[in-house]
């Protein structure tokens, strides 16, 4: 059952992705932008312009360009169908490699932030529901108003000001490591994991240290909705008839607590998944503030440079990841809750 459900959802995901590929490719080319001029400069001679246009492949009709994007040019072994996203017009290196380099940075940042946000948000939400009007509940309310009142980048700046500038207890926004430290060998791209793989606990700790403020900022903003969602769900479940009935049937308290969590967790899972998918592309401002060169930074750079292959690559990567995450949530939902039709 669950396999058929997963396969069906994967098939739907592929269709969505295909539509997106077409849309992204043609929409970019509808922009009133001239990437060639950007490439050769405004005062280039017509010959140089023509040459550049040719080298970028922009002299071809748009349908030919699309064909080349899908199947590669000639026998260069490229093309989307072979998993190649093309060559960046700015750096000249493969978009695949660049995404391979930047994506783990972003994933590392938001995964760690989510671990903290969920790790704190769920217990706080449960506490608030179990003891409405108690300290945890009231604190949550104030915090919810507070955290939600400003966007994450302004919190980032405030935290830098308070913890780095005023208190001096946090590192400056200089990236993932001190500029003086040699990064560990590139294996996964996530610096904490690579440091551990290289056996360098000191670099691992340093990376965590440098990531602490960005993680604090993200998890501070993210835990607001998570706490609220968990609180509402748990409160609702605790008032549910089946909890009352379970009590009347003399079920032990441990069993009842498990029942409540199971019923409350399913909807919260959806929210966490959606937030995560959103953050893959949405962490860009945090990355900018803390000089972390992640996928968001890469996307901004590509867009400003009219680097079409890179833009396409970023959009497709984010969409594919988001689709996979949604699929994973749906599968978990279906496993947790039999009412979700599979």
């Amino acid at each position: 059952m669950i396999w058929r459900f997963t396969l069906r959802r994967l098939a739907v995901g592929l269709v969505q992705l295909s539509v997106l590929i077409v849309a992204v490719f043609f929409l970019i080319r509808l922009l009133p932008a001239d990437p060639v001029a950007r490439f050769v400069g405004m005062n280039a001679s017509p010959e140089a312009y023509a040459l550049a246009e040719q080298s970028l492949g922009l002299d071809l009709p748009v349908t030919r360009q699309f064909e080349a994007f899908l199947f590669g040019e000639g026998n260069d072994g490229g093309g989307l169908f072979r998993g190649e996203l093309g060559t960046s017009w700015v750096t000249g290196s493969s978009v695949n490699q660049e995404i391979r380099q930047y994506l783990p940075v972003t994933l590392e940042l938001i995964t760690l932030s989510f671990l903290i946000a969920v790790g704190l948000g769920v217990p706080i939400g449960v506490l608030g529901a179990v003891n409405p009007g108690g300290a945890a509940d009231k604190g949550t309310l104030v915090y919810g108003l507070f955290a939600g009142s400003q966007p994450e980048f302004s919190w980032g700046i405030i935290f830098i000001f308070v913890f780095f500038v005023v208190l001096g207890i946090a590192p400056g926004p200089l990236g993932r490591l001190s500029p003086l430290t040699d990064p560990p060998d590139f294996v996964t791209g996530a610096i904490t994991i690579d440091a551990l793989l290289a056996g360098r606990v000191d670099i691992f700790l340093e990376a965590l240290w440098y990531l602490s403020l960005p993680i604090l900022t993200l998890s501070f903003v993210l835990s607001g909705p998570i706490i609220k969602m968990v609180r509402e769900n748990v409160a609702q479940t605790m008032n549910a008839d089946f909890m009352f009935y379970g009590q009347a049937a003399g079920l032990p308290r441990g069993v009842l607590a498990r029942d409540a969590l199971r019923a409350a967790f399913a909807p919260a899972l959806t929210l966490i998944g959606i937030l995560f998918g959103f953050m893959i592309g949405g962490a860009v401002l945090i990355e900018s503030i803390f000089s972390i060169s992640g996928l968001g930074q890469y996307a901004i750079r590509s867009i400003l440079a009219f680097d079409y292959p890179a833009i396409q690559g970023v959009v497709l990567t984010i969409s594919a990841l988001t689709l996979l995450i949604y699929l994973a949530i749906d599968v978990c939902q279906a496993l947790l809750d039999p009412r979700v039709s599979v």
């Binding site: 549910a240 008839d241 089946f242 009352f244 009935y245 379970g246 009347a248 049937a249 003399g250 079920l251 029942d259 199971r262 019923a263 399913a266 947790l336 809750d337 039999p338 009412r339």
Partner: peptide, 18 residues
Amino acid sequence: GRDIALIVQNPRSALHPM
């Protein structure tokens, strides 16, 4: 549940849905 048992009026919500 062992010596005194209860039946309620809305059985569909009294049973755990999962």
